[in-house]
Design a protein around this nucleic acid. Structure first.
Lengths: 199, 199
DNA sequence: GTCTATATTTTGATAGAC
DNA sequence: GTCTATCAAAATATAGAC
């Protein structure tokens, strides 16, 4: 269990190591602003060596955003499969999304900065749109059930909720148990609001 | 009032026109991914001509983010000068910030994408941090007054609130009166929450 | 798995004419 | 205010040796 194949001695870098370094640099300097030379320097190898592990710079971007999207998709599927009212499935989706964001922080951060400037980015935006629609639908159903206030447009509510969730990528830094507490804070604010109830 | 100086005939482009086109492109493709050649093509002039209006690419970025930051700073100053309890000053700050974001949408959008990759960006991040601290302080005071729930960390609450506000840059598109309605939605969600009150 | 060497393109910016 | 011409640096990527 400890040793996976192709992991003896010190055989130089593998694709995972290259990807991890790339994602770190892409987030720090921006995808476009990061050159393959920068990445090579970070890894301590030459530019050409990188092309032994990946076929292009876009390939690195694709692997990274796919990892983020797969995690978020799992969260959405899990919430959809839950045998409970929409408002509870929505809460679960928010909590799970916060946990995925915390767990795959660097990958999700990169995903959230994608703007559709190339084929890889366009495809990522498409997958994000599908997830977005699922959230909006949950809000809509919750309003029909009378569980969420109907005076806020469902799409707007969904976007504001995930505006909060996604903003975590800008400032959250891993701490023990921090993600669960953060999920609580997001759910509290989204569902109950911050104002104290009149005594 | 209608004619400002230096605006007769058709004397080619001025700095404002170059800046507007630059901000549009920076948002669409990213600052680093946009070349001075792209900008020249967008304007229908050559690269060299751009340097008649601005001294560098960073200069364009600096003018853009300063315009955004000046607007947000005004909103914060106005809220701070309001003779009212902290919780009301906080609500005003949120509303004013939404309106500034809507009014200077492209400039604020660019500002929010800045990561500190050069001197201009570092300076912008510094000014943002100061604004952030002002919001956190308002939340803290509101909690001490018993107006906001004390079981959420003030800095976290402030970041989540402005996570919502800032997320508008990702999807808000101008409509008549839309910004005020949006400010209502943000304030409602942040202060009252989306869940319906028990009858 | 990493290297040197190289091809090709694009970049931000300047000089100086009109 | 815009142009042509030009530059030096940096970019992504490939070929082929070790």
């Amino acid at each position: 269990m400890t040793d996976s194949p192709r992991r003896r001695g010190r055989p130089g870098h593998d694709q995972g190591a290259v990807l991890a370094a790339a994602v770190r640099l892409f987030n720090a300097r921006g995808y476009e602003a990061t050159s393959m030379g920068d990445l090579a320097e970070e890894l301590g190898i030459t530019k050409s060596s990188i092309y032994h592990h990946v076929s292009s710079k876009q390939d690195l971007l694709r692997m990274a955003v796919d990892h983020a999207l797969d995690g978020l998709q799992e969260a959405a599927d899990e919430a959809a499969a839950m045998p409970a009212p929409p408002v509870e499935r929505l809460e679960l989706l928010i909590r799970r999304s916060v946990l995925v964001l915390a767990d795959r922080l660097e990958f999700v951060t990169l995903l959230l900065r994608v703007r559709g400037n190339n084929g890889v980015e366009k495809e990522a935006l498409n997958r994000r749109r599908i997830l977005d629609a699922q959230v909006t639908e949950l809000v809509k159903q919750s309003q029909l059930d009378g569980d969420l206030r109907a005076d806020v447009d469902p799409a707007t509510a969904a976007r504001l909720m995930f505006g909060m969730v996604n903003s975590l990528a800008e400032w959250y830094r891993p701490r023990r148990g921090g993600a669960t507490a953060l999920a609580d804070a997001v759910v509290t604010m989204a569902f109950e609001g911050l104002r104290t109830r009149k005594v």
